[in-house]
Design a protein around this nucleic acid. Structure first.
Lengths: 239, 239
DNA sequence: AAGTGGTCTAGACCACCCC
DNA sequence: GGGTGGTCTAGACCACTTC
């Protein structure tokens, strides 16, 4: 048999893991440069990079575009069915959260948005783009798309707060049902740059639509997560 | 400004997409070989491969280990909260399903299993490994772990059938609640080889635990999906 | 046996981040 | 300005799949 030939790739992976353990690297700590590591393991940068990419897939390390490789912190546990606000979710897990407003635009729905909202294209939407941090690391790019007609004067509000709260307090909307889907895709330029990813790197995309008490759709949302930063966990009981 | 410098990589990606459109390639059809494509685009295999990997991330093409690159068929839409049997799920979407029994073992729970089952390690489990096909393509490797004591003589049954059905009909168990989590990880040797993936390639992992009417845990399950083959979609209403 | 993708070498230039 | 990761070249050998 002897099918388990140890490739150089897998032995470099093991050496890297050993290195991480021995140095007792802290979460978010930077690894040595690719050039230094390829010298250390007597290999080329391309081969070394393949080993790093493999550890990235396994969720052990992550990359910041042109900044280097870092040790993955513990993932944020996230239940997309829960109505919990981001900030609370984060602090419940003994982490610090922060939200930054990136842009607000009012424009007609594009194909993706109108499909999710079950509306004509060209329906006017408020699109709110925000960046969410966990422990000062950008991990989530969110685009909220509200049907303009249902949210008069919402743009005058503080949009770095929880939108769910605004829905309730200012408009009396309460989400009674939501539908969402989870896919993997390449990051667009905007998303990549906000999350410090290389353009085209993989992100976890969650598209969601919310129904109000009467079953009326009020908005939809597109979340783009750093895949290394989150763990989706769902319980059919807990709302 | 002029930040949008067109890299060779992105222009190769575009040419590839054009090629796919022009040839009107059918789902699951094979692309030309990497060598042929790198000649066609006057580049090296490494650069060309990076372009293919980028299209893989975007879910346009998929890879079979040492067999080549293929066009992605439409994804199977999957709701992990639904109690629907795999075969029905697949045929509801006008696809053909097939299940192959790979192995059955009875052994003490390992760390991962005992954690999910909230049991001592060393509790005896029946581990059933199966491979599921959609349109004759292997897309899902499943390991079901049943607490042996709760399922006497189950190994005498036909295990390529729906286990959920066996639970109900033979033992009177009905799942009343389930918890699951979704992560990305590298494929183990067994999973990779069953799904025709290169070892270490990314898979979508879903770990699930099922509670019976009285809230008793009866089994858990680990699903390893080809990430290109599935789209997770959840509705907070529909069970 | 021929051809494939997987792995690997030994370099190079560039845009960008950080100091 | 020095160093980083991102991109790219022009080859090579091997294990495996397919015929």
């Amino acid at each position: 048999m002897e099918k388990n030939k140890t490739t150089q790739l897998s032995s470099i992976k093991e050496s890297l893991i050993e290195l991480l353990n021995n140095r007792d690297l802290q979460p978010s700590q930077k690894l040595p440069s690719e050039r230094a590591l390829s010298l250390l393991f007597s290999t080329t940068r391309i081969t070394l990079k393949e080993a790093l990419l493999a550890l990235e897939i396994e969720g052990i390390i992550y990359r910041e575009d042109r900044r280097g490789w870092f040790v993955c912190p513990v993932r944020l546990i996230y239940n997309p069915l829960s109505r919990c606000h981001f900030n609370q979710l984060v602090s419940d897990q003994q982490r610090s959260g922060k939200t930054q407003l990136l842009a607000v635009r009012t424009q007609p729905a594009d194909a993706q948005q109108s499909k999710l909202l079950e509306l004509d294209k060209n329906t006017q939407l408020h699109c709110i783009e925000r960046l969410r941090y966990v422990d000062n690391r950008p991990v989530l790019y969110v685009q909220n798309c509200l049907i303009s007609a249902l949210f008069p004067a919402i743009l005058a509000q503080d949009l770095s707060q929880s939108l769910t709260l605004l829905y309730q307090q200012e408009y009396g909307y309460q989400t009674s049902r939501s539908r969402f889907d989870v896919t993997l895709c390449g990051a667009s330029k905007e998303v990549a740059s906000a999350l410090h990813l290389a353009p085209g790197q993989q992100v976890l995309k969650i598209g969601r639509v919310n129904y109000q008490q009467q079953g009326i759709i009020i908005d939809c949302e597109f979340e783009y997560w750093r895949p290394d930063a989150v763990l989706i966990a769902i319980d059919s009981h807990a709302g």
